[in-house]
């Protein structure tokens, strides 16, 4: 059948279901911590596990699956001495997802996952902007060669790195989706608010077709930041891809606290809040995702929830994420620095 594009799907449907966790599910399949999951794309002994991951998410109801290429950029692969295989590893990631997406008779969009470099950009850090763009370009070309439909930039923290990723991905001509991780008091680690993100992406060259939030802390906190994004840019197509609750340590292992019921509530609230693309991140299993699909199928979109309703259903939200959810991110606490500053360096 003819491929249906992401844009067409968005036109036809009120919401689309993305997928769940890649990393935490691969660990359940035997990935050892410290190993690069992307290497499994190239390993005939292991690549069937990546296909199983995609297949199970499709069976659970995903309309969009993300390739196993989150750490597939040169700066991440360098930590495993694989930086000379960026193109091949990403191409293989695309091919594996494509095979599973094309095996079913409903449209499933393959999104090429592009994660952060793990470096801090100049002038504060070491990485030159152009080098960042070059790394993202290389990864994006590999994913394109593997047949992905869109490029999916995720878990970003810094504006300069996000811009570099978009610039690199845009060289393919593919549509781009971009999400940041708002994990620090309702902001990204580098201080970007949902409002900042919504506004700068609306204005940028090669603007993403959809923007949103992924990972972060719990499902409730993520939803608060999604509400902040929508508040700032009501016309944006917004992605909510939250973690399955928060990680808890029990009996020597880590479990995510979210139940399928909680993730079903989260999916309904995300839709009510105005998100169009809804999925899970760390800890979200096939079972959670199936519960989200069932919840969305049966749900009539309601008015935007208040932050108190989100807290009641999904759990506590940090004060600053609360403020961000209604567009008051600037109501920050008072600085500890004394008020009588005499001088700024002339610049």
């Amino acid at each position: 059948m003819a491929k249906t594009t992401l844009a067409e799907l968005l036109d036809q449907r009120p919401w689309l279901l993305a997928d769940g966790a890649t990393g935490t599910n691969l660990f359940d399949m035997g990935l050892m911590s410290g190993d690069a999951p992307e290497l499994w794309n190239m390993d005939p002994e292991q690549s069937h596990k990546i296909r199983t991951l995609h297949r199970k998410f499709i069976e659970a109801g995903s309309d969009i699956i993300l390739t196993n290429s989150f750490g597939g950029g040169a700066y991440r692969l360098k930590l495993h001495n694989l930086e000379d295989q960026v193109f091949e590893i990403n191409k293989a990631a695309g091919v594996l997802a494509r095979l599973e997406a094309d095996a079913v008779d409903r449209p499933v969009v393959v999104a090429g996952s592009v994660g952060p470099t793990g470096e801090i950009f100049q002038p504060i850090g070491e990485l030159a902007y152009e080098d960042g763009v070059a790394a993202f370009t290389e990864q994006a070309k590999g994913l394109q060669a593997g047949g992905v439909d869109v490029l999916w930039i995720e878990t970003m923290s810094a504006e300069d790195e996000f811009r570099a990723a978009v610039e690199g991905c845009a060289t393919t001509g593919l549509p781009i989706v971009g999400t940041m991780s708002f994990d620090t008091n309702g902001r990204t680690m580098m201080g970007i608010t949902p409002e900042n993100f919504a506004n700068f992406t609306a204005d940028m060259p090669n603007a993403p077709v959809a923007v949103g939030a992924n990972c972060g802390t719990g499902a409730s906190e993520l939803l608060a930041t999604v509400m902040g994004l929508i508040k700032a840019q009501p016309d944006a197509i917004v992605v909510a891809k939250g973690n399955c609750g928060i990680p808890e340590y029990k009996d020597g292992a880590i479990h995510y606290s979210g139940t399928p019921e909680l993730m079903a509530d989260y999916a309904r609230l995300a839709l009510d809040a105005g998100a169009r693309i809804i999925g899970g991140c760390c800890g979200t299993s096939y079972e959670h995702l199936a519960a989200m699909r069932a919840a969305l199928e049966a749900h009539e979109k309601q008015t935007t929830p208040t932050i108190d309703q989100v807290i009641e259903k999904l759990g506590e939200v940090s004060d600053m994420a609360k403020a961000a959810s209604c567009g008051h991110a600037h109501a920050a606490p008072k600085s500890a620095r004394s008020g009588n500053r005499r001088r700024r360096k002339a610049s």
């Binding site: 504060i124 923290s157 580098m190």
Partner: peptide, 9 residues
């Protein structure tokens, strides 16, 4: 700590 400064600063 209080969310006034972030990593870059």
């Amino acid at each position: 700590r209080d969310g006034i400064l972030f990593v870059p600063e």
